[in-house]
Amino acid sequence: MNIIVCIKQVPDTTEIKIDPVKNTLIREGVPSIMNPDDKGGLELALQMKDKYGANVTVITMGPPQADLILREAFAMGVDRAILLSDRKFAGADTLATSYALAGAIKTLDYDLIIAGRQAIDGDTAQVGPEMAEHLGLPQVSYVIDAERKENGNFIVKKENEDSVQTLEVEGKCVLTVLASAFEARYMTVAGIVDAYNKEVEVWGADKLDVDENKLGLKGSPTKVWQSFPKQLKAPGEVFEVSEEEAVEIIVKKLKEKHLI
């Protein structure tokens, strides 16, 4: 079985702070990581490799520095890594990104494509389903478990707000995976050493099965018009008093606001 996993390098958004004076994002010193849901997807692929035997290829689109997460993927146990890196990809929104990924995947042999549900920098959850559509494949999103049947179908569990659904998918498909369902394995020491002896393939736009007009900024229907740090409301009063006084202050406020 050939499995392709789409991953993304993202800033660790839990480490991002706002500069209180300039009111801008402080991005320096913020570590770049493999997006958590993607790492969950990679773990699912590696579990399938352990169980059924599979060739696992990871693919990412990004700047040359994204090489780092591909090395990490090698160290976790993948067989092949592809970096889509070209100025023509720059400025892509989710539609143009999914189009480029689909254009790369079309040139590969695969039985299953796995992606993370969403990336923590954009939180859109759009690239997986948009890519599935470009490839004309069925999709299951919010995946928490997947097995392969003898006949090549997949039995997939997905988590909704109020239910867990078990679905059967006929043949090739795209699954988008929740990090919470797959605790990613650690890199092995031998894997880390090995990771730097393996080749990361770097592909430009000319390697893909695409119309170049649909890539990057040109191929992106959405445009960011403005961005701004979130306006925090004026802070309220904070009291550091005895418990008895605290209770009275709360009761008084609740009455004032007609909440009791």
Binding site: T94, L95, A125
Partner: peptide, 23 residues
Amino acid sequence: ATTIGRDLAPRIASRLKTGLTAD
């Protein structure tokens, strides 16, 4: 932006080749 809407809307956006803004 539910598990249904977030599954359906990008699929439609990609089929229509149009823009979608999430959440």
